[in-house]
Design a protein around this nucleic acid. Sequence first.
DNA 1: CGGTTGACGTGGA
DNA 2: GTCCACGCCAACC
Length: 104
Amino acid sequence: MISDLKGLHEKIYETVKQIPFGKVASYGQIANIVGCTPRMVGFALASLKNNKVPWHRVINSKGTISLKEFEAMETQRLFLEREGVEFNKNGKVDFKKFGWNGDS
DNA sequence: CGGTTGACGTGGA
DNA sequence: GTCCACGCCAACC
């Protein structure tokens, strides 16, 4: 359960913050939890400027990183690998093993 | 107040 | 399996 909605962004932030260490969630998953469209999830994280939110644990449904800047995607991948998340040769994450069930 | 934007998702080819 | 087009809806200008 999340605090009262002050803004969709904050709600999304709270949800992302609940993602446990070594787990990853898709934008659609977050969108489903907060009850908004996946677009907003990405938009919210894009606006993210504070490092309190583990945005690196959020990826698209394909299990890949969709960041525009190559730098950013590299950073995210390194962060996930550091947390124990394995990347395939295609650069995809196995949701079967690292997918967040929504249970913190 | 209106148009544009955007870290996506899904369906179809 | 991959790639392309359309749709979603709040935030931003």
